[in-house]
Amino acid sequence: MSAVRYIPNMSRLAKAMTGPGGKLVSEAIADADAGLKLLTPPGIGAIDEALDTILATMATPGPLTAEMRETVYREANKINSTGALFGMAGMGKAAWSLCEVIDLLETDLPSGRPAVDAHVRSLRILRSGELLPEAEGQALLSGLASLLAHVRTEAARR
């Protein structure tokens, strides 16, 4: 059995946060949100750039290579990480689902390429989809959830 040493918590954070001054919690959140809003134009630009890279990568026909998977995963994770911050929550969810699918594809699955293709097409539709009624956007995300469930089942059988 390995030795365990307990040490009292010596974090300085609580002490540094005491004292007069500061802001109301509501003000702090509002100020942070206002700052985040300033980032919307570059944020949307970064999301578009990530989507373009995904589309270019997936333009190559045939089986998904490890390099393709890695690129799509990395770029999808960027969209997942920021979509909701910049008013693209649907894209964020679709991108998260795509990350899950790619992670499951570490084992080669028959549904691999079609599942990734479906996610990529959905991302494109959601991005160009200011005209897409909300209900249809939700239906699209529900479809991706079903697809992800299918890939999970398939991966669990392997």
């Binding site: 390995s2 030795a3 365990v4 040493r5 307990y6 040490i7 009292p8 918590n9 010596m10 974090s11 954070l13 609580a14 946060m17 919690v25 702090a28 959140i29 942070a32 949100d33 985040l36 997942n80 990480s81 920021t82 979509g83 909701a84 911050l85 964020g92």
Partner: peptide
């Protein structure tokens, strides 16, 4: 992620209050 200001502030406040001891093993 995605981060939100509210979640981050909640976590900062939570972390500032926590009293968990540290432990060190191999």
């Amino acid at each position: 992620k995605p981060l939100s200001a509210r979640i981050m502030l909640e976590r900062v406040l939570w972390v500032s209050r926590e009293k968990r001891p540290f432990l060190e093993t191999a």
